[in-house]
Amino acid sequence: MWLTRKLFEGGGVRLHSGRVEEAGGFSVQGESLFKEPEQLLPYGLMSVAEAGKQAVMLDGYCAGVAGAPDSGLQAGETRLYSAGGAEICLLNDGRVVINGQAFGPKEG
């Protein structure tokens, strides 16, 4: 992958962490201040973490935000949520739960 090759060209990857800052857009304060660092996310997803969360920085790129495992999920399940309480869960039995309303698995 291009990004992996690019990161390793400089003689190794530097992994750091820092706190997401409140003021003026997305920034992370670690060893230095990263103002609006590029985020490594799957295609089609965008996110800005809440202030105070612990961000994982990889050579100046935000590789993610640390969080405890979700004990309400089973292996293979996914939960997408916002700070405002919106939530989508993809469950192993094929159901999709959106803000508490369950939709059955795709037929056929």
Rank of each mutant, 00 (worst) to 15 (best):
R14T: 11
A55P: 05
V56A: 13
L90S: 00
N99M: 03
S27E: 13
G104Q: 05
M57E: 08
V28K: 01
E50V: 13
P42D: 14
G64T: 06
A102S: 12
F103H: 09
N99K: 02
E107F: 00
D70K: 12
Y81F: 15
G76Q: 03
R95F: 04
V13I: 15
F8T: 09
R95H: 01
D70Y: 07
G64K: 04
G24Y: 04
G100C: 04
G85A: 01
P37Q: 06
G12Q: 02
S82G: 13
G18F: 06
L33E: 04
V28F: 15
F103G: 03
A68D: 13
M57A: 08
Y81S: 15
S32L: 11
L73W: 00
G76T: 06
E9T: 01
A23T: 12
E50D: 14
G72V: 04
E9C: 08
V96M: 10
I98M: 12
V48G: 07
G72A: 15
G52H: 14
G104I: 01
L40P: 01
F26D: 05
G67Y: 02
V28G: 07
L15A: 12
G94K: 03
E31H: 11
Y61F: 14
G104V: 00
T78D: 03
G84L: 10
P105W: 04
E87W: 08
L7W: 07
G94H: 11
L80W: 09
A75Y: 11
V97S: 04
N92W: 04
A66N: 00
E31K: 12
M46D: 12
R14S: 11
E77T: 07
G108Q: 09
Q29P: 03
S17T: 09
V20D: 11
I98P: 05
E9K: 10
L7A: 13
M1F: 08
L91H: 06
S47P: 05
L58I: 01
